[in-house]
Amino acid sequence: MFSEAVKIEQRVEEGKGITTLRFPMGAKVRPGQFLMVWIPGVDEIPMSVSFIGALAGITVKEVGEATRALSLMKEGDVLGLRGPYGNGWQLPPGRVLCVGGGVGMAPIMTAAEGMADRTRVDVAIGARNAGEIIFEGRARRASDDVRTTTDDGSYGLKGTVVALADQMMREKRYDVVLGCGPEVMNRYLLKACKQHSVPCQLSLERLMKCGAGLCGSCVIDGLRVCADGPVFTGEQVERMTEFGRWKRDDAGLRVSL
């Protein structure tokens, strides 16, 4: 665990409203872990690590004030970081299908690269439209079988990434599926994996304050997304009564998703 201030060395526009910031970082990170990223004067938010190594990175999609401020940061600007937090993926042996929806590709990509064996890792990339498909080139360097899909058919197949993953599970036998995306995607992916009897791991998201397992703001059925997750096994997710139905707001009140 560390806290440090880093200078942004590289800023890359990955897609429409999706930006990668790269910075040198001392701490060792495992695929699937996240950082608490402080934008001084604005906010501090959890971000999956999208690049591991000497020049680490996060990939942010503009959805609100904090993500917009982060997206607008330039090379040379300072970010506060603490972490890495969370469990990360259990990178298994065997044939793996990595499924990423939108900016959910960030932790998916580090998993695909972390396995370092393009013959046993397949990647399904989904987004709402062509402008939001990210990391396809990286995926093709890490895998022999990369497929893309968009909701509006503007790139790759037309349809959801879960339908694509379902198709791939029909064609090939996978030992495990790793998934990260919007909760509705995770929910249907879990269902598809169950139908094909393939174990899965899903990276989940909740409103997060401390990030360090203390405050309890990110709990789902008592499991802390920050400290017990963010990656949960399909069995764990199936037992969650709140998954796919409720989240907690800033006050800890349960609200419908």
Partner: peptide, 20 residues
């Protein structure tokens, strides 16, 4: 946020008494 600072030997928090 930030509501938490992590130090080597502890934390400094200012959650501000959130609750339902």
């Amino acid at each position: 946020n930030p509501t938490l600072v992590e130090l080597e030997d502890g934390y400094i928090n200012a959650m501000g008494l959130p609750g339902p």
